[in-house]
């Protein structure tokens, strides 16, 4: 959060807001509707680091990732990559950025073109950036990539439907790795996978990080998987970061009530322990993104809510070294 560090972070986001146009309301269309997807997000990611970004549906976590990749228009705020501002990068500049930052998708089925062979899919980034001239030249690097992500050598000759979800996710990772990026946004890369396969993919991502000094923005909808891969974790709620801290701080000493709720919501696969756990199942629903409330966004579900929470938005303030939280009452 302080831009005066000795080496600039790989990715730096300052006061990022993204609003989507949602048409007009009112009889004459006098009221412009805006979806407040992301509001005032600050974060930074260093080379070789994983920042876990956790939030439920509609919290703006995916939008944040896509804003950094410059896939959605930024409404306000600034984004730097390797010390260079990319907030207003043009079409060709964004295309150039694709050599440095990539995306791994959530859905391993829909993210691979069913009509292309695996070699076509993995070679595509190399071809469109002119790193190889044709498929024949691409065969060697593609085979290396496929082997690196743990797929059989003849996988390239087959079509996506011949592979299971976990294998397809490996193909997606190989495609993202083809351009040797420094930064990968992993948008819930294991949520769609079976439990026994999940760990394989997370471990693969960890190994690749160590090998290529990759930085990840690892997006997840609960706190179960991110613990293993993240160095730091940011918690988002209704478009805002409510807490950001080192991994162990989040799990051992959460500050924000929402972080606590998230932690207690993940069931433990051990019946006596689970029965004994104190469940914080706060009732209520997330606020309407078209009309977010004044003040803290979590006020409708928070047990600690006070008058101040309904009037003023709590700032993200440092509580302990490296642990920031946005709450008036903690």
């Amino acid at each position: 959060m302080t831009p005066t560090e000795p080496t600039p972070p790989l990715v730096q986001v300052e006061d990022l807001s993204v609003y989507f146009d949602a048409g007009r309301a009112g009889f004459w269309g006098q009221e412009r509707l805006k979806v407040h997807a992301v509001e005032g997000v600050n974060l930074e990611i260093r080379a070789g680091e994983t920042l876990g970004l956790v939030g439920e549906s509609g919290s703006g976590k995916s939008t944040t990732g896509r804003a950094i990749l410059r896939r959605v228009p930024v409404s306000s705020g600034r984004i730097w990559f390797r010390g260079k501002e990319i907030t207003h990068a043009g079409r060709e500049e964004i295309r150039g950025l694709s050599r440095h930052m990539q995306l791994v998708f959530q859905d391993p089925y829909a993210s691979l073109n069913p009509r292309l062979k695996i070699i076509d899919i993995v070679a595509e980034p190399l071809i469109v950036h002119g790193l190889v001239k044709n498929l024949h030249e691409a065969a060697a690097p593609v085979a290396r990539l496929l082997a690196r992500v743990g797929l059989p050598a003849d996988a390239g000759a087959r079509y996506p439907h011949a592979f299971s979800g976990g294998q397809r996710q490996r193909i997606g990772i190989a495609r993202a790795l083809a351009l040797k990026p420094e930064f990968i946004v992993a948008d819930e890369p294991v949520s769609a996978l079976d439990v026994s396969i999940r760990a394989q993919v997370v471990n693969l991502l960890q190994d690749l990080q160590a090998e290529y000094d990759l930085a990840y923005l690892f997006i997840a909808h609960d706190l179960a998987v991110v613990r293993h891969i993240s160095h730091r974790i940011a918690i988002m709620y209704a478009g805002k970061i409510v807490e950001i801290a080192g991994r162990d701080q989040i799990y051992d000493a959460p500050v924000h009530p929402y972080t606590e709720a998230l932690l207690s919501a993940v069931p433990v696969p051990d019946p006596p322990v689970q029965r004994a756990r104190r469940r914080i199942a706060y009732s209520g629903e997330a606020p309407d993104p078209l009309h977010p409330p004044v003040g803290c966004r979590f006020q409708s579900r928070c047990p600690l809510v006070s008058q101040q929470c309904r009037e003023k938005t709590p700032p993200l303030a440092e509580r302990q070294s490296g642990q920031w939280a946005a709450c008036w009452n903690r």
Binding site: R95, Q102, D107, A110, S111, E124, H129, A178
Partner: peptide, 25 residues
Amino acid sequence: TPYVEAAEIVGCRWPRIIFRHILPN
């Protein structure tokens, strides 16, 4: 569809996306 987004993120220009990823469907 995500695979068209993937093609864009990977750096494909629009003619390639239209003729290779969209038209065959």
